[in-house]
Amino acid sequence: MKYFLLLTLFVQSTIANEIDVSNASIRLLPGTTTAAFLTLENKTDKEIVLEKVSGDFAETFELHDMVMEAGRMQMRPLQSIIIAAKSKVDLKHGGKHIMIFNIKKPLTEKQEYPLNLHFKNLPIKKIKAQAIKPVF
């Protein structure tokens, strides 16, 4: 029984450790549209694919990328975000981000909001992202 428990713990922690999520934040903005940013670190030897993000505090979550070309900003939806084996992907200002539309009620600064990250062939990863006002 003891060994079984240890084994269960081991298996659970392996799943949890396949992908590391850090610096999760939601940009606090007026209006009902904003973006969330985070860092994804793939600790495995195989690529990991983020396919979708979901949450309760807004109606729609989409993966988007922003490309600046000759001073022109272009924003496009992404089908998925690939995190190559043993590497990191930063979702950050001016680049890939989680686009959030139709926020149900205004977010509060410093409060944490749950997000579900849906990876291909992995269990849903539940994280919390803090609403912050970045300083520029």
């Binding site: 940009r27 959030i100 300083v135």
Partner: peptide, 17 residues
Amino acid sequence: FLSCPDVCPTTLQTVTS
């Protein structure tokens, strides 16, 4: 434009600062 989630509000915040 207002549905711009990053670039426009960044400029607005930078100019505010």
